[in-house]
Simulated assay, not measured.
Amino acid sequence: MQWYTGNTTYDTVLTIGFAFAAFVMIGGMFAQSPYGRFTSTKIGLNLNPKLGWWLMELPATVVFAVFYLTGPDPFSPTPLVLAAIWVLHYANRGWFFPLSIRQVPGKTSSFNFSVVAAGVFVTALHGYLNGAFFSHDYLNQYSTAWLTDPRFLLGLVVYLCGFALLVHSESIVRNLRDKNDPGAAEYRIPRGGAFRLVSSPAYLGELIAWAGFALLTWSLAGVVILLITAGNLVPRAFATHRWYREKFADYPTDRKALIPGLI
């Protein structure tokens, strides 16, 4: 299948990525991934959330590094900048976020193993598609001039805005639990920041970040992860909004689920 880069292996994996994105988008209409508040103890093995998140995100770091560093052009300016953006994202998502989770003492099973398995597949796929694409520059688009291209500059601004929203929103949620007494209340209504407007600002930030990433890389690999993320997080945002409204009688009625003022 030489329809994008001309590299048979890469194009085949990219095709698999789009097929999986379609599967996630269709599946998300019928059920939520079993982790966090939507964990089901009826489905297989559940893991400690810190361990589950770390295992799920680990391939994004390892697989990316392998295929990026073994490619022919890992130390050119543009691939290095793109790799730095990748490292920024997964230093937070794959390492800081899992280690910073404040879990209820004694609660060891809130992350379903099926989620870990699916996540490992996605992050390995994601790591390969981007690590190989950056370092091989299959389409000959990543000269130094790319760093001043309007698509890169606009995409970088969009990405950084989304990333900032993601990190800030996750910080608000994390601080709902007292560091010294995380079991005092398992769930509370988050307030402040973008929570004034929507129930899931972290999901919105993640979607904005990956939209910016797709633009700044100008690659189908970026589109794949954006579609997979949307297929998972958009239905989950609506389910989370319903969950909050059902659980808390005083939940703010003017908050939307995902997009301020709209839905």
Rank of each mutant, 00 (worst) to 15 (best):
G155Q: 03
A211D: 03
S219F: 07
L125S: 06
V122N: 15
N232Y: 03
L233H: 07
V116D: 07
N232P: 03
L227I: 12
L166R: 12
V167Q: 12
G106P: 05
F152W: 08
C161F: 15
G205Q: 06
I172G: 04
I225Q: 12
A211Y: 07
G231D: 09
I172K: 01
G127C: 08
F133M: 13
L207Y: 03
N180W: 10
V158I: 15
G155W: 05
L226V: 05
D178C: 06
R196D: 15
V115T: 12
R102F: 06
I228C: 04
I189F: 06
I228M: 11
S143L: 04
P150Q: 03
F133E: 14
K107S: 10
V158F: 02
P105C: 02
P150K: 05
L207Q: 00
D178Q: 08
A221H: 07
A209S: 14
G192T: 03
A124E: 01
V158W: 08
L125Y: 03
A194P: 01
E206P: 01
T108S: 13
S109H: 14
V224L: 09
F213L: 12
F134H: 10
T229A: 15
S114P: 02
L176R: 02
P201K: 04
S199C: 11
I172T: 09
N112W: 04
G231S: 09
L197R: 06
W146S: 01
G162Q: 00
P190Y: 06
E186T: 10
G162R: 02
T144E: 15
G183Q: 09
L207N: 03
A194E: 01
E170R: 08
I208Q: 04
H136W: 13
L160T: 09
L129A: 00
P150M: 01
K179N: 12
A214V: 00
S110R: 11
Y187N: 00
N232E: 12
V173G: 01
G131T: 09
R174K: 11
A214L: 00
A202M: 14
L197E: 04
A194K: 03
A211V: 13
G131L: 02
I208T: 13
F121S: 01
Q103G: 15
S171I: 13
F195L: 03
S143V: 06
L160I: 07
L129R: 02
S110V: 12
L156S: 10
A132N: 08
F133C: 13
G193S: 13
V167C: 09
N130W: 04
D181R: 11
L153D: 07
L156A: 14
K179F: 11
T123M: 12
A145C: 05
L227E: 07
D178R: 09
R177H: 12
E170Q: 12
V104L: 04
F152M: 05
L207G: 03
N140E: 15
G205Y: 01
H168C: 10
L153E: 11
A221T: 10
V104I: 14
T217G: 05
F213P: 01
T229I: 08
T229S: 14
R191V: 15
A118I: 14
N112P: 05
Y128G: 01
